[in-house]
Design a protein around this nucleic acid. Structure first.
Lengths: 340, 340
DNA sequence: TTGTAAGCGTTATCAT
DNA sequence: ATGATAACGCTTACAA
């Protein structure tokens, strides 16, 4: 396609040297106001657009940020990306978005594509299969700024944004106990995930505080397939020693639970109460409406982006601090944990 | 950050000229098998990664496709992007994803950022505010391949992928009539949208076929705000001449209807039946479960990508044909249109 | 204040 | 079969 005119052509049109035009467009102090004006108006007239690749090559910056998420069909991640884009677009950054589909091999492939400077930084949430982190470490060691959110990677010394996973899970479990649950199960995607660990700790501690012993069989390890998860949960619900409460550490497992319950003669909340981490706007429209722990997704995205922009645009910024920044979630109680 | 070694450095390591190394890596016929092997193994050993910007600058190709959607928190668009990525990633293409948030000014800004070759092609669905299409035309005239899906732009002579909007809306409306609805309303985002026009035609024709006259007040023109839409729909439902059936041309308006109904003493499906275009996997978990017209989102994405890849990778391809390709939707009947 | 020239990392053309 | 060189479009020393 026709990319329009180049700086050189624009300069020829103005009878100026390319360097002068470049400086004028970049508002250099060494160019007179008069020529600046001339240059800018001609640039507009001819609709001059700088070639991003020439610039990137020269400056060794891409003005692009890579966002890597485990799945795209997910309210939480969509909201986070909206938050990121909100900030980065104002600063002229572009977003390359990749989904790993919870597949660590895809994750590795994507990271290897980002070794060559195509993106100036990475914002990511790891896949549920990620336990070996050498592919992440490699890029971080090279000096590529990486920032984690939600599903973080503690081995990489960088900044991570999470919600108060431990407390939320603790409070959620406590709520189930207060609503009369005696046998509470915990649904998780993968034991490796940071969010699983933290949320599970909160769950266990809340049980213990109430004098209840966490049963190993009640910590259900699910997978990526909705059908399989529904089946797994259904089996749990049909077992002789079935739970009467569920804390779901991710949204999709709550939905799988709803599907599973439909295939039994149990009912929510009478036979089973459930609370779940979820960012669905329509949790209130489910049957029954779902009690949720909602993460501040958009804020998380914005905060990631703000920090990154600071790091990328201010000269000689220090490395991203090895710290975890926590933004609290919000519990909304609905019918799925109701006593009646 | 450290981008690794360059072709020149790799060449020096091998005591070869950069051009030779380049040719070896690009599997040129003029290079001996022996040197090819040497080069490739050394490139692997030193983890050589070609600089994408140097390559883009030289070849005038970005290996990048821009995807522009009106909103990110949307099952349909997320699925379409999954479909696109599925195909394009196999061919080494990267995806820049932009959301317009239904704002035509943002849309214009994004398109102007794409004037300079940053992406080799655009796949998009226009915002609900888009009626003047000069910003799209400008890029198309420059020769940038643009492909539309769902919310298409008939003024631009290129390939468009849609679902059978007219027929689906016709069948959906017919279904409502068969379920006993006498006064059927149509919910839409914007009159300008291609999908609105087609779906509305289907709605009107189904009414007429049943000998019913479409009431103007029953074609409800909604906006981007969920709260405002809920209020608008609530007013319609509380009016003296209220509808007993609704065809919602987009998912979010069906959800707004559910919210609106909650604020009345009406009930679905007894007082009001509703069918909606929707790609929610959990339509069956709503209260009541929602009768849907589901678009083949992932397939649409895949087909867009396949066509684009063909256009971009085969040399001297003709322009994208000015045609509309239709992939049918699927109606799933659930409780929201039940007679009881 | 403006111009000249080098260089970013590739690939293609033209030698050898 | 391989090497030297120019060019893609931009920015930045260095000159003037």
């Amino acid at each position: 396609m026709n990319n329009g005119i180049s700086l050189k052509e624009l300069a020829a049109e103005l009878n100026l040297a390319p360097s002068t035009v470049s400086r004028a467009l970049n508002d250099s102090y060494e160019i007179s106001e008069a020529t600046k004006k001339k240059v800018i108006s001609m640039a507009e007239k001819l609709n001059y657009q700088p070639n991003p690749f020439a610039r990137s090559l020269r400056e060794n910056k891409s003005k692009t940020i890579a966002v890597i998420i485990p799945e795209r069909i997910n309210y939480f991640f969509s909201q986070v990306i909206d938050g990121i884009e909100e900030i980065t677009s104002e600063h002229g950054y572009h977003l390359l978005v990749y989904s790993t589909h919870e597949d660590v091999e895809k994750e590795k492939k994507i990271l290897s594509l980002l070794q060559n400077g195509r993106a100036d930084a990475i914002v990511m949430s790891v896949s549920s299969q990620t336990s070996d982190v050498s592919h992440l470490k490699r890029l971080h060691d090279r000096g590529l700024p990486i920032l984690f959110f939600d599903r973080i990677c503690s081995e990489i010394p960088t900044t991570k944004f999470i919600t108060n996973d431990y407390e939320s899970a603790f409070e959620g479990t406590k709520h189930l106990i207060q609503q009369g649950c005696k046998k509470i199960a915990f649904l998780m995607l993968s034991k490796e995930l940071s969010i699983t660990k933290e949320r599970h700790r909160g769950y266990v501690d809340a049980l213990k505080m109430a004098g209840m012993e966490p049963e190993p069989a009640f910590s259900l390890h699910c997978c990526h397939s909705d059908e399989d998860n529904t089946q797994l949960i259904r089996e749990l619900l049909l077992s002789s020693n079935r739970p009467d409460g569920i804390l779901s550490s991710v949204e999709k497992l709550a939905l799988a639970t709803y599907q599973a319950v439909k295939k039994t003669n149990l009912s929510i909340p009478d036979d089973l109460k459930i609370i779940s981490f979820s960012n669905m706007s329509i949790a209130g429209l489910l049957n029954p409406s779902l009690t949720t722990i909602t993460q501040p997704a958009e804020t998380i995205g914005e905060e990631c982006a703000k920090l990154l922009i600071k790091k990328l645009t201010k000269p000689r910024q220090p490395d991203l601090l090895n710290q975890v920044i926590t933004i609290p979630s919000k519990i909304t109680i609905r019918e799925s944990t109701l006593v009646r």
